[in-house]
Design a protein around this nucleic acid. Structure first.
Lengths: 243, 243
DNA sequence: TGTACCCTAACGTCGCGTAAAGGTGC
DNA sequence: AGCACCTTTACGCGACGTTAGGGTAC
């Protein structure tokens, strides 16, 4: 805490130290305690004026203020997460050595829009599934979100390289297993969430443009078709051997 | 984007729209594209002056700027996480209905100090273990951190209520299993991290005061003693039955 | 003639940092 | 007398919001 800060707090009526006859400030232990309170609340992001109200008028507002502040900070955190993963996406497209400035910009913009659009997907989810999905996203670190979306991209590419395979072939069955595993990871094994996504994908031609573009680099229709057949094949084989 | 913002960007040389004879601004498609770039970079938290340099002088700095900004945002996120969990702690102590304002403040301060002190724990970890532990903390959401620390607190209380039990009793063995399970969860099953924590706990009388106070509400010495015996008992029983 | 826009200029916000100009303690 | 400290006053930052005062398009 700098001297200037102390003066600042005093002008905002947060501190009222006594003075020596010549005008020097004298900080008593009580002032120090109050200062610690100010610093604690400031560290939570509360504006000094609000702290002044809390400490001078009524401490009873404190729990409410804390709850509000928590909500504010959580919003800020979400914005930060979005910005960070947008940077990740942008850096990923810039890596290969192509400068391509406007492309990078558009990647950033797209990354934001994609994270805006989930609200649009809500219509395909049941209320319960949507609540679970939202909670899951809150619990997931952007880092692991990043890894999952990269795993999808890699899987799509691998599938595109295997379009010629028979659905029953070992290679196709491997891809199908990877697919199902990713579905389990991305949905945390929750069936309601998986159902919501299945419906959302079934109506993907009605998605907003920016969301569609996220899969524009691959032939998503043929991929879905291929995996659908491979999974069907795998399920059939499973029942043939089991029963 | 408000009108005032457009004027502001223009004064900072971020935009240069043409003018009608009477002085009205005319925004061409090129200006719009540039505006979108400004907005995208601003959303990442870059200051407008830096954006001006990037867009006017050299785009080549862009990747470096993005990487730096990512680091800045990740720091901010860590601060935010700390503030959020400090609020959680404070609200948790306020719940029971006791106003107790100064106590709440001290909780907040303590919550910050505890999150500051991990650097002190570094000395007990091998370099490799410390790196793994840092990475694990980065990947863990504050939410789940909160749940884990609450689980520890509950377990401690349950153990305190069972001090009279024999180490070999079913109840003690249950508590030992809960303990080992929490260790596995908190360390993500990593042996290096577990070893680091074991050393850190072994020297807990040399921890800084604020960290010690975190366990001050329970009789941590007897808890550690009790669990040590119970685990030893469990291990012995395991080998007796196996071999 | 109205009214819905546009323009510039300039001050306010928030939490201090940073002088500048001068007094106090020892 | 010197030097390290204190005091008040006031401007600066960053990204605009918000008047105030006046012109323009239709």
């Amino acid at each position: 805490v700098t001297v200037r800060a102390l003066h600042h707090y005093e002008r905002l009526r947060l501190l009222r130290p006594r003075r020596t006859p010549s005008g020097y400030r004298l900080y008593a232990p009580g002032d120090l305690e109050r200062l610690e309170q100010v610093i604690a609340l400031k560290a939570l992001g509360l504006p000094l004026k609000r702290i002044a109200v809390l400490l001078n008028r009524d401490m009873l507002q404190l729990p409410d203020a804390l709850r509000m502040q928590r909500a504010v900070l959580e919003d800020k955190r979400r914005l930060l997460d979005r910005a960070i993963s947008a940077i990740q996406e942008a850096l990923a497209t810039i890596q290969p050595g192509n400068p391509a400035d406007p492309v990078v910009m558009k990647k950033i913009i797209a990354a934001f829009k994609i994270q805006d659009s989930p609200d649009f997907l809500k219509q395909y989810f049941s209320d319960e599934a949507w609540a679970k999905w939202k909670q899951l996203r809150q619990q997931t670190t952007p880092d692991s979100t990043q890894r999952i979306s990269q795993a999808w991209a890699e899987l799509w590419k691998d599938i595109e390289a295997s379009f010629e395979e028979e659905p029953a072939s070992e290679k196709a069955q491997d891809l199908a297993r990877r697919w199902m595993k990713l579905v389990q990871i991305a949905s945390a094994g929750d069936l309601d969430i998986q159902t919501g996504w299945r419906d959302a994908w079934a109506n993907r031609e009605r998605w907003p443009e920016e969301l569609k573009q996220h899969t524009a680099s691959v032939n998503i229709e043929r991929i879905v078709d291929f995996i659908g057949k491979a999974v069907a094949c795998g399920v059939k084989r499973y029942y043939d051997t089991e029963g």
